[in-house]
Design a protein around this nucleic acid. Structure first.
Length: 557
DNA sequence: GCGGATCAC
DNA sequence: TATGGTGATCCGC
């Protein structure tokens, strides 16, 4: 039904696929006044003959079909009597309104173009030139580069086409982690329960701090930003609002530097949201945006006018999430980064495409070894294995299996993964494969009894420093019933890898009382310094003594 | 429980 | 010279 994009020669400038080439340039800061059509044309010209493009095109067509189906279903609903759906929606709106908590001051910290900012800080030669950080894909670029249409996610070869003098900088992930650790240290002072999302964002709840010192949120955030700038030389944007959702939107409001406070008054909150495109809301991605658009929802206010259709069209969870968006609801409780437990460990690698079984097998082995290392770091084993294979047409296949017992060694993982990889390759004769992935979920602790003992020890010595220790606890966060909705979940998905390490590093820069022994077989994790120690009570107790006293010393130094 | 999709960064 | 990696969740079966 819809204009098919199946034939390559005439892609319409107003088609969704075409627009998708502009990508985030459509909504991000730094792209005002950029010629979006030109960006789309350039990207299109550069990619139209690739397998990747074909794949994207297929996906786009599937999405268009989905949207058409939605439109048709909505048309049918419109012909029927929707009073009961309307009634139900209003009931939910009333309930959500009633349950809103406006008493908290949530802050969202956003380091805009984080990698680029760090590089620019360290390298004066980048000051006035367009540059991008990344390997084959742009991870971040400065504002000069953005003016030419360069953006995160773009293939560097294409970015160079648009911006011939674009300078490419290889990412220095260790440096970015250091900077993030410094930022964490600054945040700690205002809210030890801060939550990190991804590599460059964080939430704080400063309600307590404001009360305790009788300072206004605005002033607290001003001094927090000053601290961060002083510690790191990086400017951050901050949003202050009643919940995470609004705080985040507020911070994007004044990027790249500055702060914005949204008063916690229902009318003001809703007016703030009203004309906002739903795409800007955390949790509404490209796909949902397209689907919503097809039924006449472009802004948050449109959600309300279409509320009688949303449950039928999108299901209960999404329905309630959308109403929350309309009301400006969001999480008011943060999940302290130091408390978070990983639920999975995975590695996936793209390599030079090949259909040679022995090479694929070797790649799989490497991937499995990396997974083993990761599990070792977590001191976990996994009971559910997921193997993923992506072929050179970008189609991917996966298989998930629940194993009789948890595994963690590369040998076991490889052994259980290989059959699916082989079968997938065999089902596509002569078709090269470009990526392999292995994930373990249902993670279980490798040393139950000892872990419990450590926790007791940690608890005993933790009074003044709960956060540096709680990472080792098996804390079950029983979320308040009915409070954790889709929005919350969507919002709290990305955790920062290695956050424990970075925090530890900043608190105890030199804490390394005992060199972690090399023999990796029977090891257990020390809850204080987070390093593996031999599974031997005497040695471990010695270690613990040193480690504890050393962290005490650190505390008072 | 499984497989595919979506979303965020 | 050519499209990433990690982690989490949801939906439909």
């Amino acid at each position: 039904m819809a204009a098919s994009t199946g034939s390559n020669q005439a892609i319409k400038p107003d088609s969704n696929l075409f627009k998708s080439f502009v990508g985030v340039a459509a909504i991000k800061k730094g792209y005002e006044g950029v010629d979006r059509d030109k960006i789309a044309r350039t990207v299109y010209e550069a990619s139209k003959d690739s397998l990747y493009f074909n794949h994207q095109q297929k996906r786009d067509e599937a999405l268009t079909e989905k949207c058409n189906a939605l439109m048709e279903r909505k048309r049918l609903l419109e012909e029927s009597d929707t009073t009961s759906q309307l009634f139900h929606a209003d009931k939910v709106v009333a309930r959500l309104k009633n349950n809103r908590d406006l008493s908290q001051s949530i802050v969202h910290i956003d380091c805009d173009a984080f990698y680029a900012s760090v590089e620019q800080r360290d390298r004066p030669d980048l000051k006035d030139v367009p540059f991008a950080v990344g390997d084959t894909v742009v991870a971040a670029c400065n504002y000069i580069a953005r003016k030419t249409g360069c953006r995160a996610g773009m293939v560097i070869a294409v970015a160079k086409k648009m911006c011939p003098n674009l300078k490419i900088v290889k990412p220095n992930h260790d440096r970015y982690r250091e900077v993030m650790a410094q930022i964490c240290k600054a945040m700690q002072k205002y809210d030890p329960g801060y939550e990190i999302c991804g590599t460059d964002e964080a939430y704080l709840n400063i309600t307590k701090y404001c009360k305790e010192f009788d300072i206004k949120p605005w002033d607290v955030v001003e001094s927090l930003r000053k601290d961060i700038r002083h510690e790191t030389g990086i400017a951050v944007a901050a949003g202050i609002a009643a919940n995470t959702q609004l705080a985040k939107i507020s911070s994007t409001f004044i990027k790249p530097d500055g702060q914005y406070q949204l008063p916690s008054e229902p009318d003001i909150m809703m007016a703030f949201i009203k004309d906002l495109p739903v795409r800007k809301v955390t949790g509404v991605g490209h796909t949902l945006d397209r689907q919503l658009a097809s039924i006449g929802v472009a802004t948050c206010d449109d959600i309300f006018s279409q509320r009688q259709f949303l449950r039928d069209l999108f299901g209960d969870r999404l329905f309630e999430f959308l109403l929350e968006v309309y009301l400006g609801c969001g999480r008011t409780e943060l999940q302290a980064t130091l408390d978070q437990q990983k639920k999975s460990a995975s590695i996936e690698r793209t390599f030079k495409e090949t259909s040679a079984p022995d090479i694929v097998e070797r790649n799989l082995r490497t991937v499995c070894e990396h997974v083993e290392a990761k599990l070792k770091e977590l001191n976990r084993a996994g009971q559910t294995l997921t193997v993923k294979v992506k072929m050179n047409d970008f189609e991917s296949y996966s298989k998930q299996t629940k194993l009789p017992k948890a595994i963690s060694s590369a040998r076991d993982i490889f052994q259980h993964s290989l059959p699916f990889v082989k079968a997938t390759l065999a089902s596509k004769p002569h078709q090269p494969c470009r990526l392999l992935g292995v994930r373990l979920t249902q993670l279980v602790s490798k040393n139950y009894t000892l872990n419990a003992a450590f926790q007791r020890m940690a608890d005993k010595s933790t009074h003044s420093k709960p956060d540096s220790l709680s990472g080792a606890k098996e804390k079950q966060l029983s979320s308040p019933a009915g409070k954790r909705k889709l929005g919350d979940n969507l919002d709290s998905r990305a955790l920062s890898p290695r956050k424990k390490k970075s925090n530890l590093a900043l608190e105890n820069p030199e804490v390394n009382p005992l060199e972690p022994p090399r023999c990796p077989d029977e090891m257990v994790r020390c809850p204080i310094c987070d390093r593996d120690q031999p599974l031997d009570n005497v040695t471990f107790n010695q270690h613990l003594d040193i480690c504890l006293s050393s962290s005490e010393i650190q505390k008072y130094s």
